[in-house]
Design a protein around this nucleic acid. Sequence first.
DNA 1: GTGCAGCGATACCTGGTCGGTATCGATCTG
DNA 2: CAGATCGATACCGACCAGGTATCGCTGCAC
Lengths: 278, 278
Amino acid sequence: MEIRELRYFVAVAEELHFGKAAQRLGMAQPPLSRAITQLERRLGIALLERTSRKVTLTAAGGVLLAEGRAILSAVTAAERRTRRAATAHPSLVLAVKSGTAGELLTKLLDAYAAEPGAATVELLLCEAHQHQLLQDGQADVALLHLPFDSAAGLDTEILYTEGQVAILPASHPLASRSQIRMADVTTLPELPMARWPGPSGSYPEGPGAEVRNLTQLFQLIALGRTTVVIPESASADLRRDLAAVPVLDAPPVATAIAWPPHSRLRAVADLVRVATRL
Amino acid sequence: MEIRELRYFVAVAEELHFGKAAQRLGMAQPPLSRAITQLERRLGIALLERTSRKVTLTAAGGVLLAEGRAILSAVTAAERRTRRAATAHPSLVLAVKSGTAGELLTKLLDAYAAEPGAATVELLLCEAHQHQLLQDGQADVALLHLPFDSAAGLDTEILYTEGQVAILPASHPLASRSQIRMADVTTLPELPMARWPGPSGSYPEGPGAEVRNLTQLFQLIALGRTTVVIPESASADLRRDLAAVPVLDAPPVATAIAWPPHSRLRAVADLVRVATRL
DNA sequence: GTGCAGCGATACCTGGTCGGTATCGATCTG
DNA sequence: CAGATCGATACCGACCAGGTATCGCTGCAC
């Protein structure tokens, strides 16, 4: 099985249409058809059921689609990392959600910079899905929030855990309470919970506002359009017109440092060691 | 970058000798040289330093070697899993170290078999390194012992934790103690700690005996040649001529269920759910 | 039911590339 | 300095990837 064949198969499996897949791949349809047929023949397995009107995945095809996606991103990751390792002074790319872990991040960067032989750390600020950045090699290490961010296939080390707070307009009746419960906020019909985009970039269904980052979120909360339950530390330096109320029964959130499992970079190992000692 | 090129590069990087690598790949040396050169040209990066007497890896080459190995095993895993998914009644392959988790395993298998729509579970008994079996697709799920077994790049769920015991000849002075410390056993000059093979199959340096499984190990302990500290549960049904003494300060061992992160198999999800409920 | 449009498969051609053999050039050994 | 070792280069034949033209099947419109 070759990368080329995998790329072709993934395209067809995602489009479920040979013509569109060929267009996406920048090639003509006939060689694509042939390549897929040949892949199936070599594996001795049907990956797609095709009529002249519809293409569907077989069970085996579904498995190969999942595995193939992982392999393709691993390949682009390998290229990126190899290329980066070839530069004179390879830097370390740390992915963090903007607005996250303010104090921890400062301490971590300071402590690591003091290490002998420390690499320069580039910060890759993102809205979410650091997971993908690690998988396809755009980042070397990431700070993420468990269990919200997926850590599938990553090595992690938990740095600390904290409770969660609800963010409400300062004028809201619940804002003056010293603590509340999940049920108190999730059942407010006038304040539906905000929705965040999934890994594909699309939003789940629901009544709440669609947001991408804390600034958007806080603005919408101030306008009385939505509310949210987030880790305590993300509510530091809150706007005057917002209030943070501890939510007793919200699941605790762990901030973890994560890296791809076969990373051999000395800088990653150093940074993780420093982080766990903080 | 194609799989073929990666396979070639990994072979050369491991052998550090074009001729031997070509032999291992079953091809002549010149096309191999050319393929590597071309890979380097396309990446725009030197992966190997070569004189006519010696081949060494560059930093970038080292990175690509690590990434490439992971990719190659992911590809063979993808083929195996796809092929397995194509069979009429795909079974679930569970990898366990022989002699491990006796009672837990029985309960797990029974509980899972009672699930509606349960797949048949094939047991893959191995000496160690279930990690590799999951990575290259020979197994779908595994039971492993943290922190001994590597769980890098796997999703895990901890089932339970337990203390460790030292296994000693029944006649040994320490055998009658109700508890001991690590220092007591690691410093016995006449009983050096047994050595287990690493992932490559080779043994670390040391004075202790080389063992592959519990049967071998227990025999050597009974003969007064070695000793070992292992999880409590592995000492159930111990031979008469051996004694198990709790080691107070040995790190606790967790038995976990592990699976590859992008596994979409329903059977894996079911088995994990059942396992965590035990 | 007939004609048409959409879609995947097939037939056939061309150029690139993969792998093989022969050989060169450099370097270490004795 | 002769010989051995090892990677690179030159050259050749076979194969295969990709392109165009076209076929055959299947819904659908009227």
